[in-house]
Design a protein around this nucleic acid. Structure first.
Length: 262
DNA sequence: ATGACTCAGGAACTGAGA
């Protein structure tokens, strides 16, 4: 079973890329972020025609997340618990069952948090605290469980081509990195770091200033695995070439393969 | 030093992104 995450930066602008990438990568489950449309505007039929079930948690103009799955999506819930006042569409969760193995998948779009001296940064840290609480509760189930999405967190210096450029940024500030470590230290495994020692693995390159051409990327899209999911991890990777397509998203797909029969 | 692009919304620009 292949599970992937991709911030598409508008699903309507990226539909051709999404269809092309699904055809070559053949993921079983896809977590999409920044779909930037309401539920009714999501191009559901295009994905259903490719054999995917679709669950959408959209929002007008901004944010928005969705799940695509070749297996039925069960127990779909939307919204990250812990703050009834949070109206931004950044979280959708579901369970897929593959020949007796149930896999719980959370698709998340963690707040950017910039500028850090505004209310946006405490919102980000609050979201991370709520995410940690949810992960702690899910881990008690002792089942395959995956947090996948755009975390908007550069975990370490190794995850940025130019870490100095990010020292005052909400993606890399010490409280952000501490909160990410607190999450991982619950017992989660970073799929990319568990399968590769390579440097210069990135998932985002800014549109501006030739960041892509100079390979000035950052790694902010992650798959975090429960022990039961990590035990079944076979491989993980980043589909970097997608960033070279015409009019791309600024993020590329990140995926992990599991020894779970789909 | 700053901005550089790319989106949505809505019809010229602003806000958001990271």
């Amino acid at each position: 079973m292949r599970i992937a995450t991709w911030n598409v930066n508008s699903i309507r602008q990226r539909l051709d890329h999404a269809v092309r990438w699904l055809g070559e990568a053949a993921p079983d489950v896809v977590c999409l972020q920044e779909i930037k449309c309401q539920d009714e505007a999501f191009p559901r039929e295009a994905f259903e025609a490719l054999g995917y079930n679709v669950a959408v948690h959209g929002q007008k103009g901004f944010n928005g997340v969705a799940l695509l799955s070749k297996l039925p999506l069960e127990d779909v819930t939307t919204g990250l618990p812990g703050d009834d006042g949070d109206v931004q569409s950044r979280f959708i969760e579901a369970v897929v069952s593959a020949k007796g193995t149930a896999v719980r998948i959370c698709c998340l779009y963690l707040p950017n948090g910039n500028p850090p001296d505004t209310e946006k940064y405490p919102y980000k840290l609050g979201f991370m605290a709520r995410l940690r609480a949810l992960a702690a509760a899910r881990l008690e189930l002792e089942e395959p469980f995956i947090l996948a999405g755009d975390f908007n967190v550069i975990p370490t210096e190794a995850d940025a081509a130019v870490p100095e450029a990010w020292v005052n940024d909400a993606l890399f500030l010490p409280p952000t990195r501490t909160a990410f470590r607190d999450l991982v230290n619950l017992g989660l495994t970073d799929a990319i770091r568990a399968t590769s020692d390579s440097n210069r693995i990135y998932s985002f390159w800014d549109y501006q200033a030739g960041a892509w051409q100079r390979d000035l990327g950052i790694r902010i899209d992650h798959l975090l695995l429960s022990p039961q999911a990590a035990d079944r991890l076979i491989a993980a990777g980043v589909d970097k070439h997608v960033r070279s397509w015409e009019k791309p998203s600024d993020h590329v797909p990140v995926w992990a393969d599991f020894s779970i029969a789909a």
